[in-house]
Amino acid sequence: MSRICQVTGKKRMVGHNRSHALNATKRKFLPNIQNHRFWIPEKKRFIKLRISVNGMRCIDKNGVELMIKKIKNKK
């Protein structure tokens, strides 16, 4: 399963590790993805999302219903 946030779309980035001698080796920067359940009051049920912590902050700020509408409009 890929590490992609279902709200923000954040995914893995690629960069370099740099040693003291400035040798460059490839590395991955992974997003902070969590599995989380959100309560939807209008449907009276939980939904599960694979979401970054930044996405959780967006949901806390804007509300679950608005973010779900945005997800559906993206698809």
Rank of each mutant, 00 (worst) to 15 (best):
G9C: 03
L66Y: 04
I4W: 00
M1E: 12
S52E: 00
K44V: 09
K26L: 15
N62K: 12
K28C: 05
M1N: 13
G55I: 05
P41C: 09
G15Q: 11
K70H: 04
R50W: 06
R57D: 07
R37L: 08
I59E: 05
I68L: 15
E42D: 13
E65Q: 07
L49K: 00
G9T: 00
F29M: 06
R50H: 15
G15D: 14
T25A: 10
C58R: 06
I71N: 00
F29A: 04
K48S: 12
S52Q: 02
L66F: 07
F46C: 06
S2E: 12
R18N: 09
L49Q: 00
G63Y: 01
N35F: 01
V14K: 12
N23Q: 14
P41W: 02
K43H: 04
N23Y: 04
R27Y: 01
K48W: 01
S2H: 05
L49A: 00
N54Y: 10
K43Y: 02
K10Y: 03
H36K: 15
L66M: 14
T25Q: 13
I71F: 00
I68G: 01
I40Y: 00
T25D: 08
R27H: 00
P31G: 08
H20Y: 09
I33D: 09
V53N: 08
N35W: 04
S52G: 02
K70C: 05
I4C: 08
T25V: 13
I51W: 01
M56D: 05
R18V: 15
V7I: 03
I59S: 07
S2I: 12
I47P: 03
I51M: 03
R27S: 02
N17G: 06
K70R: 09
V7L: 08
K26C: 11
N32F: 10
A24N: 11
R3Q: 11
A24P: 04
D60C: 05
K28Y: 14
